[in-house]
Write a protein that binds this DNA or RNA. Structure first.
Lengths: 204, 204
DNA sequence: AAAAACTTACCTAATACAAGGTAGGTAAGT
DNA sequence: ACTTACCTACCTTGTATTAGGTAAGTTTTT
């Protein structure tokens, strides 16, 4: 009745299981209430332990946040690059697939959306993280856009840099409205509409 | 030395002045830290009074938030409708002007951006407010888009509803990147690029 | 027109109660 | 014998809100 919370044999396994559960709970909590709004106690409880129990694994709330972000970012960034490479010469299709996938994980989308806006304040713990993230991700896209323009897939009358910013803007903006009214906003559909406008034929 | 904080003659004037100062300070504080992150004490201090002094005018923090939102919304909504009517038959130009104006008031932009994402949680005090706001504002734009399409100003191969969502998405998404790196992102310029794609000529 | 009664704007002080983090212990695993 | 995972208390700080008072402005009464 006391040690049923994480019944694993080895310590390494228990640690890993606990950390995973904590991160999972933290994602939910941060997504629902943001960094400042989320309570460590709730996260701990949802992960099946107490507040100090949680703090044994992550020394502070801020550390937990950063771990959560790094963890998700690693996964997402890889997915993005993979998707881009998979549909290599079809950049726009890759983008649509990405948005489609996002429709599967509203919690994560909300997490990043909320934390991005929160982190605009320079004193937010994730401030630098997100600036770097945007620059890095935009950089990847710019590379891909250059290639797509050379291959004649995308209209060439707009600079790759501008296109990258615009594509991210559309993604982010659609996410906001979609999160508010999920069944009313067809995020992937609308994104595709936009992407079609970027195809080479419709350029001058 | 004691009564220099709001030196007005009549009570009505003092009240109005205090409320104005409070709302102004609240806008700044909410913009910087969001609703949950902003502290009543700071807002009160910035307005030149104490915490209970503030609460004399607004019964609670939540009430204050809602007043702030209503106040700003009234002004912004009117500006939007005015701009739309002024450049009546040039909807896209009106939009660009709106974005240009937003570049003038980063604090307000950040306020709304942060509160929108925060308020996606159904238990947020401004949840309903923002859902209604989006629906209302989109409604206005849909009307205007219908007219612009009939006038041949905008391409007609996309439904007015979809266009409205997309335009708001671009605005919101550009705002996010602009708020993060104000001197790197040319919000109005990029918005214009997008609007040009919506013009009638570039449709099929 | 002056005084009395009341209302309003605000203050100081106290309350309530989260919520992050610490101290030090116990029991399981190594 | 030692380290690790975790718990039960405890502490601290921050922050919304209340209690009750004071002084200035406003209305009513005389």
């Amino acid at each position: 009745m006391k040690q049923s919370q994480t019944p694993r044999r080895t310590q390494a396994e228990r640690t890993r299981a606990s950390r995973e559960k904590i991160i999972h709970s933290a994602i939910e909590a941060f997504a629902r209430n943001g960094f400042r709004g989320a309570k460590l106690a709730d996260i701990a409880k949802a992960a099946g332990l107490t507040e100090p129990g949680l703090l044994h694994h992550f020394p502070s709330k801020t550390h937990l946040l950063m771990e959560v972000l790094k963890e998700r970012d690693r996964i997402d960034s890889e997915r993005m690059r993979a998707t881009l490479q998979k549909n290599g010469n079809q950049l726009l299709e890759a983008g649509i697939e990405l948005v489609k996938h996002n429709q599967t994980v509203p919690g994560l989308v909300q997490l990043f959306n909320l934390l991005v806006t929160e982190s605009i304040s320079p004193d937010h713990p994730a401030h630098e993280f997100f600036i770097e993230r945007y620059q890095r991700e935009r950089g990847h896209w710019i590379q891909a856009i250059v290639q797509a323009q050379q291959a004649g897939e995308i209209r060439s009358d707009i600079s790759p840099e501008a296109l990258a910013v615009l594509i991210f803007a559309i993604m982010d903006g659609l996410q906001m409205q979609w999160l508010m009214e999920p069944e009313k906003i067809d995020m992937a559909g609308l994104f595709r509409v936009m992407m079609n406008m970027l195809k080479a034929e419709s350029g001058r």
